[in-house]
Nucleic acid binder design. Structure first.
Lengths: 201, 201
DNA sequence: TGAAGCAGACCGACTGGTCAGTCTAGGATG
DNA sequence: CATCCTAGACTGACCAGTCGGTCTGCTTCA
């Protein structure tokens, strides 16, 4: 029972790993099941033993993709420090993630374009962002309570913060030169923070 | 020669209009050439008379798409007022555009995911953003020169501004509720502006 | 002990549908 | 007679998904 379950997990991982690689390189539509078969080292029969269809693989991959992206964010909430420091850490970690997931970014945009036509995908992405927003909103609320930040709707400010992150990721994806991390550094973070911090008059 | 050219233009427009509608609804891959034929009211022969392939239509559509998006931005540079006002007008116009292009947004994300695998697409989008950045950078430079804004790299600040716009468009695409324009209004603009404006100490 | 039975995991040749693009046989316009 | 079409049948490649079959390990029971 146990080693059987392990095998199942192992095989599913094996298939999703292969699918991730193939889908990233060729996109959902150009990728053939036979590519995934070849990449996974399994057979077509095995592949269809574990997943009923290509769509099922895509959906399973999506779950894994956004769950993975989420982890970094979720862990952050326990960070020490005042709201400003927490946001700084958050942004910094997020930027690092963007660079770390470089190759996987195109997969993200595959999901976005799928989202337009597939409710299931849209809902998954939505859930992901809402959880993200909740975390940031909480931090910002702290900052408002402690008098660090100006009086502002924390949900909206959180949405704005995520927008900045996602926008920068997009820009970097399209034109890495325009957005040289070493040069631009934490500029957007600084702009955002200065934008919401209380001024000392 | 003249009315012939007109007819050519007209037919090409007819085809691209149909393609835009079909691609927006079904995505590049699910959309069939026969769908575009039906939508355009022309025949398959006519379609292939004007465009050699599906890819050629996609590329032509891309040029039109980004050229259209660009116009609004290009016109802005002549706007009156100081840098702050110009940026405010710019952001406001951009947000209006997002809402106006609601149905066409999914097409944009089709292009983004294509960009990962097609240099021609990547270059086109890149060019579009660079022109956009140049405009914003110019305005921000003005603001720095006039002492309105803090000393900052205008190119980087412009990149940050575009990131905010694009990020918000993305968020809205995925979750319009999270980003209710009437509620969130010009918050991101205000945050950005406060972030780069000189403080009166 | 070992033969028989069985189920779950897996193999890969094959099928059947789909669809981009072609082609034929015209017709109109200028 | 060149250009701009119409109508739509057709071809050929491509590929998701199927299906008959194999292999391995476990259980049963004589």
């Amino acid at each position: 029972m146990d080693s059987q379950t392990d095998l199942k997990q192992e095989r599913r991982k094996q298939i999703l790993d292969a699918a991730e690689k193939v889908f990233t390189q060729r996109g959902f539509n150009k990728a053939r099941m036979d590519d995934i078969v070849a990449e996974s080292g399994l057979s077509k029969g095995a592949l269809y033993w574990y997943y009923k269809s290509k769509d099922e693989i895509i959906l399973a991959l999506m779950d894994r993709f956004f769950a993975g992206e989420m982890q970094a964010g979720e862990e952050l909430i326990s960070t020490e420090g005042d709201a400003r420091q927490q946001l700084e850490v958050f942004f910094e970690a997020a930027f690092k993630d963007v660079r770390r997931f470089e190759e996987r970014m195109s997969l993200g945009y595959e999901f976005f374009s799928l989202a337009a036509r597939t409710e299931e995908v849209r809902d998954a992405i939505r859930g992901y962002y809402r959880r993200y927003q909740a975390i940031l909103s909480q931090i910002i609320q702290q900052g408002i309570d402690s008098g660090e930040f100006i009086s502002i709707d924390p949900d909206d400010a959180a949405t704005a913060a995520i927008s900045i992150l996602e926008g920068m990721a997009l820009m970097w994806f399209i034109d890495p030169e325009l957005l040289d991390w070493d040069r631009i550094g934490d500029l957007p973070t600084r702009i955002f923070l200065q934008g919401i911090m209380k001024r000392e008059l």
